[in-house]
């Protein structure tokens, strides 16, 4: 789990003397292990319908999800350990020109940024971060499953006031940096699923809706090989629709100001 910390004491001292911060940074981060919350398995009706399956409920297997989105401070540790992911070194294939543009320098987020969610990160960067933490990005279904919860209910999507509260976030300007992570946990114990930042998912490029979202049921089967674009159920759940819209507008190297991420881990079967 933590191979980097299995280093002899001698080399520890030498590392300190040589002023090599990276191993220390890594080990320190490993010491402050980020909180992962176990999410029980379940079934739910996804907003993305399953046409070949008559829109039946989707099953999500038990998995662990990070309690909060990854912060600038945590991302800094990663970038220090893997400098090929610094914004002045990253190849264009993996991130666009706006990658981490809000950081004071390629190696410092700047004052007050440590506990704010990292934004302007590409999907590739998010993937690499999660891999470095022996984790991965959540799938869309996993994300949607946990996001359906309010403080008291695992599925609050029918609750008009809960939906209205989420919609309110879209009605606010976004020029200031996002607020710090934390706050009220939802039913599962996870925080900031709404109201803070958009979040990457592992299969962002599986959201096969057409760029013109009015073409639901458009029989252009050739374009998507057989089944056509997926349809969006529950079109009144605008909060989710907007997430799908945003993720489907992006390529893997794209970054945008309100987009961050959190990691997930597959858990061994409970039984």
């Amino acid at each position: 789990m933590k191979p980097r910390c299995a280093i002899s004491r001698w080399t520890w001292v030498l590392a300190c003397c040589a002023g090599a911060l990276a191993p220390i940074g890594n080990c320190a981060a490993a010491e402050r292990a980020p909180a992962y919350i176990a999410i029980p398995s379940g079934s739910f009706a996804s907003t993305l319908s399953n046409p070949s399956d008559n829109n039946s409920p989707v099953r999500v297997e038990r998995f662990a999800l990070r309690e909060t989105p990854v912060t600038n401070g945590e991302f800094l540790s990663f970038v220090n350990a893997h400098p090929e992911w610094r914004r002045d070194r990253i190849p264009a294939t993996f991130a666009d020109a706006s990658y981490l543009h809000h950081w004071a320098s390629p190696s410092t987020p700047g004052p007050g940024q440590d506990d704010r969610p990292v934004i302007s990160v590409s999907w590739f960067a998010a993937q690499a971060y999660c891999e470095a933490e022996q984790a991965r990005l959540p799938t869309w279904y996993e994300w949607e499953y946990v996001a359906a919860a309010s403080k008291t209910s695992p599925d609050a999507r029918r609750d008009a006031s809960w939906r209205a509260e989420i919609l309110r976030w879209y009605g606010r300007t976004s020029e200031a940096p996002p607020a710090t992570v934390g706050g009220t946990a939802n039913f599962y114990g996870v925080k900031n699923m709404h109201g803070l930042v958009w979040e990457w998912v592992d299969d962002f490029n599986a959201l096969l809706i057409s760029a013109d979202s009015r073409n639901q049921g458009d029989p252009d089967k050739l374009k998507f090989c057989g089944a056509g674009a997926i349809s969006l159920q529950d079109r009144e759940n605008y909060a989710v629709l907007m997430r799908v819209a945003l993720l489907s507008s992006l390529q893997g190297a794209d970054t945008t100001n309100n987009l961050g991420f959190r990691c997930a881990r597959t858990l061994p079967d409970a039984k």
Binding site: D53, T93, A206, L208, L222, C225, G226, Q251
Partner: peptide, 19 residues
């Protein structure tokens, strides 16, 4: 992701994908 191709695995094992 690098090539800009979208795909999605369906429960029956088939894939929706752009070409």
């Amino acid at each position: 992701a690098v090539l800009g191709i979208q795909y999605r695995r369906l429960p029956n094992g088939d894939y929706n994908h752009t070409t």
